[in-house]
Amino acid sequence: MVENNHAVDESGEFQRSRSHFADRITADGSSGWPVEPGRYRLIVSRACPWAHRMLIVRKLLGLEDVISLGVADPIQDELSWRFTLDPGDIDPVLKIAYLGDAYRAREPEYDGGVSVPAIVDIPSGKLVTNDYLQMTLDLSTQWTAYHREGAPDLYPEGMRDEIDAVIEPIFKEFNNGVYRAGFATSQEKYEAAYRDVFGRLDALEERLSTRRFLMGDAITEADIRLFTTLVRFDAVYHGHFKCNRNKLTEMPVLWAYARDLYQTPGFGETVDFDHIKRHYYVVHSDINPTGIVPVGPDASGWSTPHGRESLTN
């Protein structure tokens, strides 16, 4: 079974592939791709948690007018991400019907998976990068000349080692753990992933009981990476991926923390529960063969008071 360019191995364990195109866009241009306003187009699916990170960071840093945005249909076909939300089913800037066209413009013989987020060079139509682990960090560190006045420092230089240490187990056990549970084809691999997911959530519940955000009083890259999985948890991962020990709404600290972020400008307005649910429940036909998309859960709770302000020093 394949999820974009990711697969399940012979043991029944989900394996997430490394990004094939890992170029960087840098302030000094030494990478061959210089920071240049208006040159690049960010392609996302609002359903994808990895792409969602880019939406949040782009918004928080005020880069909306610097890096343009294309949004793919949440429902993929056999050619993967498509631009059927746009007039004529064509991206209005790149003039392509499928994101895969930009991949092949970069590497004509490429026959691997097509993933989001992706950054495309508008003049050439070539894919620059689909390295979801690096892309948000580069928005924070390489595009500083174009950050809005008062933009947050999401990856402070003096805290990067500590942030990386917090991010690593969150990625392995939670961000990717829910996929390892959902796509496992053996009971053993599913249960191992299930234990990882809830072991990490329990540790985060404890950590966040005494601090407003993961690193203290300020939002950082670590919070963004955690949020995009939390916001999908009850809608998708709890049922669809069988991560059902409890819901996010049943973990008091994490639920309040997630609402705090959701109500912060740059977060809630980038969440699209319709796209999220339609993608997972329709595209993953081996998990949900009927293709029925759940009506719930009720999203109104995301706007209720969170009471986390008292944790700020």
Rank of each mutant, 00 (worst) to 15 (best):
L63C: 11
D121I: 06
D101R: 01
G125M: 03
Y110W: 01
D91Q: 00
L60R: 09
I122P: 03
S140K: 07
M135I: 15
Y146P: 00
L55N: 12
L85Y: 04
A72W: 10
E149T: 07
V116H: 03
I75P: 04
Y146E: 08
I56R: 07
L154P: 02
T144Q: 15
Y103F: 06
L60H: 08
P108C: 07
K126N: 07
L137T: 14
D89H: 08
V128T: 09
I122Q: 07
L133V: 13
L99M: 04
D153R: 09
G125V: 02
G62D: 06
D111K: 04
G70E: 11
E64Q: 15
P117F: 00
P152W: 03
Y146Q: 10
A102Q: 06
I119P: 05
Y146H: 15
E78C: 09
P74V: 10
D77L: 00
L69R: 14
G62Q: 08
N130W: 05
Y132Q: 13
G88K: 00
D131Y: 04
R104K: 10
G88P: 01
L154K: 03
M135L: 15
G100F: 04
P117S: 03
R82H: 12
R148W: 01
V128Q: 10
L69K: 14
L63I: 08
Q76E: 15
P92I: 02
V71R: 07
D111Y: 03
I67E: 13
W143E: 10
L154W: 02
K126P: 05
V114Y: 00
H147G: 10
A145E: 13
I119Q: 02
I75T: 14
P108T: 01
P108M: 04
R53M: 03
R160C: 03
V57I: 12
L85E: 13
G125H: 08
V57L: 06
Q142E: 15
P117R: 01
V71P: 10
Y146N: 10
K59T: 14
D77E: 10
G150W: 01
T141L: 13
D89K: 04
E157A: 09
D73C: 11
A105T: 08
L127I: 03
